[in-house]
Structures are given as C-alpha cells and as structure tokens.
C-alpha cells in the first residue's frame, strides 16, 4: 500500500516536473535571476490560491446563510469589521510580505559592479540578433557563447523597431530600444543551451526571431574564445 502510494507520488511529481520543464520554461531555472523569480512565483501561487479559495468559500457561505436576523444597530460595527479586516488589513499584509521578498530580489538582479563581469553587446534588427564581444572583437549571429558562473552584462539596443531580449531559463527580459542601451545582468549555473526569443511584438517574423545562449565551462569557453579570435574576421 505504502509502496503504491510512494510510486504514485513519484509518478505525480515527475509528471509535475515534466509539465514545468521546457526549453523556455521560467519554472525550470538555470541561473540565479530565474531561480529567484521562480521561487517568488511558487510562493505567490500558494498564497494566491489560498486567498482565492478563502474568498470564494466566504462568498458561497454568505449566499447560503440567512443573515437577516442581524439587528440594524450591530450592522455599522459589523460592516466596519468586514471592511477593515478583509478590505484593508488582508491586502495590506499580503502586499507587505510580497514586497519584502520582491524588492530585495529586484535589488539583487541589478548590474552591480563586480570583478568577473563579462560584457556582451547585442543589437537587434528585424528579425535577427547581432552579437558582439567588445573585449575580444568577436561577432556572432543569433547565438551567444558565455562562460558558466560568470555574471554577464548584456548591452542591448535596436537598430529599427523595439525588440525584447529574453532567455527565460536565465532570467527576465529587457527591451531593446532604438536610441538607447539597456543593460541586463544574467548568469548561467550549468553548461547547456538556453533558448531565447524576442518578446516584444516586432512585425511579420516576430514568431521566428529566436536565438540561443550556449553556456560553456570555463575551459571550454576559453578554448572557444581562442579559436574565434584566431579566425580571420572576413571569413565569417
């Protein structure tokens, strides 16, 4: 009996995990930013569900019961109690907790100065991504190689319309706007290929404006870098 229960739990949780994984799943994080957000989500999901169930239950119960026996004199006090607890205290408490987690999370995602930060420039056009490594003079198209466990500052801009740079498994998105440069800090925990896609509607081929971030271990990345720096530029 216990074994069957354990088995079904395993099946259920693996189903659950498959449901949450995917090449662009924010619930399958592979970097610190994405992990923080996914943690926030699960917390909010649980609390939100509780609130929803609670309010619906209250409402349902209120519809079932016959409350006309309440004397009018008591009503003023009762109405204030309903509103002050449910209408003011409940959302205020929920918001406070949410911000207590949310603001520090956002704080940590800022591109703080650090020793080992690498800079990558990405320019979007309809409908492709031009990648440039300023420190090494490497140019790439629709793919970005990065070392793992290194904070990367993506300097984002656009040459035509507004696009948005998004690698869901690594972290949040940031718009690429003509005339300005936005900086997005991302980091990958493990080697692998992470899909990215334009998230701001940018015209006809918006659906196909994708790219890949390939995270390599430190050694592999160094080798890749060397190989590319040696390559004469005009061959590409």
């Amino acid at each position: 009996m216990l074994k069957r229960l354990a088995n079904s739990l395993v099946v259920a949780s693996s189903l659950f995990l498959t449901a949450c994984s995917g090449p662009m799943s924010t619930l399958d994080p592979a970097g610190p930013s994405a992990r923080m957000v996914s943690g926030l989500w699960w917390g909010m999901f649980v609390v939100g569900t509780l609130v929803l169930v609670g309010v619906v239950w209250l409402w349902w119960h209120a519809m079932q019961r016959d409350g006309q026996s309440t004397a009018d004199e008591q009503l003023q006090e009762k109405q204030n109690r309903w509103v002050i607890w449910g209408g003011i205290a409940l959302p205020t408490a929920a918001i406070t907790v949410l911000l207590a987690f949310g603001i520090p999370a956002g704080h940590r995602m800022l591109p703080w100065p650090a020793g080992n930060v690498m800079e990558v420039h990405v320019e979007a056009r309809q409908w492709y991504w031009q990648v440039h490594y300023p420190e090494h003079d490497i140019e790439l198209l629709n793919e970005i190689y990065i070392p793992v466990n290194t904070p990367i500052d993506f300097h984002l801009t656009s040459q035509d319309v507004i696009h948005s740079f998004w690698v869901p498994r690594l972290g949040g998105k940031l718009d690429m706007i003509p005339g300005r440069t936005n900086v997005l800090r991302l980091e990958a925990d493990a080697p692998g290929t992470y899909q990215g896609q334009c998230a701001e509607f940018c015209g006809r081929a918006h659906a196909f404006m994708k790219f890949e971030v390939i995270a390599l271990s430190a050694e592999d990345f160094a080798a890749w870098q060397q190989e590319h720096e040696e390559e004469p530029k005009d061959e590409r």
Partner: peptide, 10 residues
C-alpha cells in the same frame, strides 16, 4: 518607501 532601499538611476 523604496526610496530608502533602491539606488536611484539604475
């Protein structure tokens, strides 16, 4: 409130 928590221009 966040004036006391977050840096201003980033």
């Amino acid at each position: 409130l966040p004036v006391g928590v977050l840096p201003p221009c980033a």
